[in-house]
Design a protein around this nucleic acid. Structure first.
Lengths: 209, 209
DNA sequence: GTGTGGAATCGACAGTACGTCGAAAAACTC
DNA sequence: GAGTTTTTCGACGTACTGTCGATTCCACAC
């Protein structure tokens, strides 16, 4: 799918451009209508090719979606790092992690909503989601266990289940929200409560007195 | 769509029977495959009528789904009553409320998953969901406010947001679960924490010592 | 410049599902 | 058993999807 014949650099091939054009068109259309209402005709049209030419670049609409989706994964796992790799009820770190998720939903809500709706009955998308979730759950599980071992968090549900519920909650909260960003602080509070129980607001930050 | 011409009772008309047959077929098929894979042909076939006859009874597959969905609403709001109308961290009542939801997901998971996935872009289904949610959120909001006024629950996020997050969490948790029933106790714990913060296990029941 | 092979493009076709219409058959009323 | 209403169906038109083979484009070799 990529570039030069020799070591010498040359611009992206015509095909590479078309491929990008399709992706761009998809992003563009998603700004205006839900994923389910986007047709391959439109994708092709937006990239100035016929519908059948579309299939030269992607196997199906799903393939396009997956491509878009993969562009987001990196960002997510980067911004959640500080929180997931940290220790204790670090409100600031959690806030940053959740805020970045909120931004993601703000910018790509239609894509995410559509993809998630299509996931059952669409293996590649389901896999993408499963991978992301697995990553989050595993790191969060480990974090909870660290905190418990250090006496920083109370017992209760198994760390894994707790992590899964936290993941579920984030997803559902943003999927339904009209204003993801407005939800961030409350989500942070709730998630901290889920894991640590009720904390006096003073302790709910990095350095406790 | 229903029965007798005079006050005199008469068995359900042929049409009523067909209508039921379609609904039954839908339930039957949902036991085997996801909603999205069920076609109107199959629904009609199961009820022994041609595809075009199907449209005499329902406007679309969506209409069938909505009919099935409405059959569930009553059950839900009944079983959640004791908890929603009660006061304080009443673990038993919450458990019953959530356990009944779990049973619902166990018995009708495919229907619910499919319906929820179809909701964006399917007004009637979206409305059903919205109605159920509104009911739950409003009652729970009122409950939280009661508890706060009585000094039984800590402050934090607005009662409404908290209620919305609780609703989101229930949905997402069960939607993803392979074994809804196994999740009940942990969900109860987490939800109590969301609303009341960390409670010593002894107090987490009706009569505190 | 010519030719040659892969990259890229397209029209035509076949398939599936949806929803509508008007004509007919069945069931019921009087 | 004529008249109505309920129920049924086949035929049709539409909107997508995905595939095939034929064709054109284009970079490079000679």
């Amino acid at each position: 799918m990529s570039s030069p014949t020799t070591g010498r650099r040359r611009g992206p091939s015509k095909g590479d451009l078309r491929e990008r054009a399709i992706l761009d068109t998809a992003r563009e259309l998603l700004r205006r209508k839900p994923l389910a209402e986007i047709t391959i005709d439109e994708l092709a049209g937006g990239a100035q090719i016929s519908r059948s030419s579309f299939y030269f670049y992607f196997d199906s609409k799903t393939a396009v979606v997956v491509a878009l989706l993969h562009g987001l994964s990196a960002e997510v796992s980067r911004d959640t790092g500080p929180w997931l790799d940290g220790t204790g009820p670090d409100r600031a770190a959690l806030r940053q992690s959740i805020a970045s998720l909120a931004a993601l939903w703000r910018d790509h809500g239609r894509l995410l909503t559509g993809a998630l709706a299509a996931a059952p009955g669409c293996p590649p998308i389901a896999e993408w989601r499963a991978g992301l979730r697995r990553g989050h759950v595993e790191r969060l599980t480990a974090r909870i266990e660290r905190d418990r071992a250090a006496g920083l968090a109370p017992g209760g549900p198994s760390a894994r289940v707790l992590a899964e519920l936290a993941d579920d909650l984030q997803l559902a909260a943003f999927a339904g929200a009209t204003d993801p960003e407005g939800l961030v602080d409350d989500l942070v509070t709730v998630e901290l409560r889920m894991m640590y129980g009720d904390l006096p607001p003073e302790e709910a930050t990095v350095g406790a007195p």
